[in-house]
Amino acid sequence: MKILEVPATLSYKTLDPFLGQVTESADGRVLLDARGLSWIDPVGMIGLLSAGRFLTDRSEHPPVLRSPESSEVSGYLSRMGFFERAREGFELVSPPPRRNPGASDVLLELSTISENHDVHDVVERVQERAGHILSRTLRYPPSAVVQFSVILSEVCQNILEHAEAPGWVAAQSYNWSRRLGRHVLILAVGDTGRGFRRSLEGEHSGRFGDRWSDSTALEAAFLHGLTRFPDQGRGQGIQQMRRQVRRWNGVISVRSGTARIADVPEWEDLPPLEADLPAFPGAQITILLPERTQESE
């Protein structure tokens, strides 16, 4: 059995090398050793679940996951509903900590998106907690909860309409006091489906010729609103998400295949377009929404 160490920090900044290691280890049974995990965000959690599904699809046996030694990290993963989802793709070495049935500070627990009603369910569940976090923590106006719900709906529908495989969504807010001096909400969505290039290639690859790639597919969808559907009304979802995230001075990035494209404000240092990333199936969308400052009000 191959042993793959999960990095100490698994976040939107550190996920790519880990996914690269996962794809290189895909032959045979794999143990993902997360004992040293000390920090993980929703992007990391969905990345870990995606790794599990990727390895399951390529092996007779599901991969094994060794839980973090840190009770704080395990407890947080439990509150986020991570272990419930992980059971679907991993064999867990030790029983995860019990989930406290009481009140939780989690904005949106890891939720599987495989059908239309799953989108309704997350939009319904997020209302009260999102309202609280958006208004009190991020200091957004009261109307932001509806706009956030629309983003959530559109980003989840991206899975249903383009991935042709189930995916996950999760959201949480963090105090980035050292890094940014304010709170940030992280919304992550991911799947291991066919990705943007394969979703669009039947309809659009011809006009790109030899240039057709994960990067050009992402540019087509992200910048130009192209979809595989001939219906003129399609393709608005990403455009509208970009517009709203820009109003909130946030980040939106889409990673698919070997490329990532992003709208990046001045406070973040992600490149607007990256190619030659480690290949990984499906698509991963990350949205970062920063707390409003006096300058932005």
Partner: peptide, 15 residues
């Protein structure tokens, strides 16, 4: 209607 997203607006209003 407390939340109306773009996909639904397209299906209902536009179509």
């Amino acid at each position: 209607v407390s939340v109306l997203d773009y996909s639904c607006a397209d299906e209902v209003v536009a179509k």
